[in-house]
Design a protein around this nucleic acid. Structure first.
Length: 355
RNA sequence: GUGGCUGUAGCUCAGUUGGUUCAGAGCGCUUCCCUGUGGAGGAAGAGGUCGGGAGUUCAAUUCUCCUCAGCCACC
């Protein structure tokens, strides 16, 4: 198992699909990997169906890399929103969505299922620290995250032994750093996770401060306290300029819903340059937004961007895209998603050159 | 030609026994938000002298008359 050269950005295929695209489309955007979600796939498919399909890559017909998220964030934030949805104990998380049967997700189960998925990197189940949590609550989630990390790692070793996976065959395993805005808790969490031993650490929780700004302080603590051999992963990060900043600080891996969700909502990313060659991601305002759903774009015959070589930019005009958005055809989502994913893959290509 | 119905925001339409909840809704439009995904959702905003004219009245989008436009029915 291995990952492409860093830094890398993987779009989210939570339920084993990048919405609106098939895996050939994804490949054509020069995207190297995707992120699937343990919680969703456990609920939708379960271990038996995954094994029957020969793993998630085979099921999707995807030749690139795959990372699986543990599901901790999804379940944690759902319960936070509606306590009736489930509860968190040291054993794990019980949850029950309406119309579905009750399920228990433990750190062990999460890892075992991710091993069944056959991915390149697994993530241990973590207990989400809510940004509004006070110190006591944050400490509690940090301690539980460490406990679960220990159990997850043990299960990982056990499965590797069972399946006789040597170093080159086993996936990477990521620990997740919680602690909210409390930097000493973040540091403590990092130290304890390193004692357990992982291939990398993820920036867990919610990375946006209450004033809406990205919290680079936590990222800094992670960079300063992690071994040089560790991969650093910005879970759910982020906007293009945030990724640029984190790569500069030392982060390697990213995943985020923004390029794909924004595409479906009519927000396309456009480099403020005439050609791909002229793009300079170190400039403060190196990109802007283009919204095809605005009526005034109906008579714009130019491409979305001349600094892009995606299918959408090569073949279609802003006018056509505006039309597709106006009539709400699914193809609008597909062409916009293709463009935004190519924007992100160009971003990562540029960052590989500069880092 | 006669009788009836309709005419309120860009669109589809509510509403008024005449008076500061009568000038509204939905959609559309404009601007913004979206960060380990619900193809989700949210925030703010612009738009109408209630077809036109006259009359009754302290007061009319609401009542009366005339007129214009569209639709239906009948000669």
């Amino acid at each position: 198992m291995k990952l492409p050269p860093f830094p890398i950005f993987f779009p989210d295929a939570t339920r084993a699909v990048v919405k609106t695209l098939d895996t050939t489309d994804i490949e054509n955007t020069k995207t190297q990997g995707i992120l699937v979600n343990t919680y969703h796939l456990y609920k939708d498919l379960g271990p038996d169906l995954i094994r029957k399909n020969g793993g998630i890559k085979k099921m999707m017909g995807w030749n690139g890399s795959v990372i699986s998220d543990s599901g901790g964030f999804q379940v944690g934030s759902l319960i936070k929103k509606n306590p009736k949805f489930g509860k968190v104990t040291n054993i794990g998380v019980t949850f029950k969505a309406s119309g579905e049967k009750k399920l228990l997700l433990t750190p062990q189960k999460s890892i075992r299922f991710q091993m069944d998925l056959g991915v390149d990197m697994v993530v241990v189940l973590d207990d989400f620290t809510d940004p509004s949590d006070d110190y006591k609550k944050a400490l509690e989630s940090v301690n539980r995250t460490i406990l679960w990390a220990k159990k997850g790692k043990e299960e990982f070793e056990k499965i590797c032994k069972e399946r006789k996976l040597n170093k080159g065959q086993r996936p990477f395993i990521l620990g997740v750093v919680q602690g909210g805005k409390y930097l000493d808790l973040r540091k403590y969490c990092i130290e304890e996770l390193i004692k357990i031993g992982f291939d990398g650490l993820g920036y867990g929780g919610w990375p946006i401060k209450e004033n809406g700004e990205f919290d680079y302080e936590v990222a800094k603590v992670m960079c300063e306290n992690s071994p040089k051999t560790y991969m650093l992963y910005g879970l759910g990060v982020g906007k293009p300029h945030e990724i640029v900043n984190l790569v500069k600080m030392g982060f390697d891996i990213f995943d985020c819903v923004l390029p794909t969700r924004d595409a479906r909502h009519g927000r396309l990313y456009v480099y403020n340059a005439k050609t791909i060659k002229e793009i300079d991601v170190r400039k403060p305002n190196f990109y802007s937004y283009f919204d095809p759903s605005k009526g005034k774009n109906l008579d714009d015959l130019s491409p979305i961007s001349t600094a892009c070589d995606c299918l959408t930019c090569k073949k279609y005009s802003r006018s056509y895209l505006a039309h597709l958005f106006k009539i709400k055809d699914f193809t609008a989502g597909r062409l916009a998603t293709i463009h935004n994913l190519r924007f992100y893959s160009i971003l990562m290509e540029k960052l590989k050159l500069t880092s």
